[in-house]
Amino acid sequence: MANQTQTPVPLDFQPLASPMAMEHVTIQYGNKVAVRDVSLLFAPKSITALIGPSGCGKTTLLTSLNRLTDLIPHCRVSGSVRLAELEIFDQRIDVIELRRRVGMIFQRPNPFPMSIRRNLELPLREHGLRDRHKLAEKVERTLTEVGLWTEVKDRLDRSALTLSGGQQQRLCLARALALNPEVILLDEPCSSLDPLSVAVIEDLLVRLRANCTIVVVTHNLAQARRIADSTAFLWADEAGGRLIEHRATKALFDSPRESLTAAFVTGRVG
């Protein structure tokens, strides 16, 4: 795949790129505390990486940003999470609209078991776009944005499951982008992909930064260094996961304030 040599396609939407902020967030599964008292600011038009050892609550923290924690029985979130001025854990808000504004990409690509076209059209229809021509136009444009159009334009009606892992993940990204999200959450989006697909996705994220707030959980420290503007380091002990340090990526890796961070980024712990 020679996507790196393609000229970047300008993105067709200019969403608000709202900031997200969490204050004193604690997340519990039953009696077990997964994340304790975390306050973080995700700046607009930037990429924030969440790093830390397995089980430190990175993914849990990420899923609280679009209230996917609602799906987990006995999961309780306290504290405040705001999307721009909206308090997202307010029971009165429209969760469905929240999730349109905050898109999410998962660790394993999860296209729906239906055609490529339908994978993109279904969420668009759900959110009110019914015009056939507009739908077709939108499908083409988002697929072009993720560099998938030339690869799939002749087989849009084939099952999305026939795509390779990297293509599936880009399709999922296209599906989320089609809804013009203000924030995009990514949960280790590259961990199940081959290096070439990883490069394509990273390239795409860097281009998306101009229009969105991006939060990415990653196991791969090198990836955080390559793409993230700022990086937050989490660590877990018996009392649950907590935030150790959140700074500009370069500063966090080159001159960490905390000794734990230094130990982690140099591979001595974790």
Partner: peptide, 15 residues
Amino acid sequence: EIVSGCAALGLSRRT
């Protein structure tokens, strides 16, 4: 993953 995918895209439970 498919169910959480639906939720993340803001699909209603009906859809």
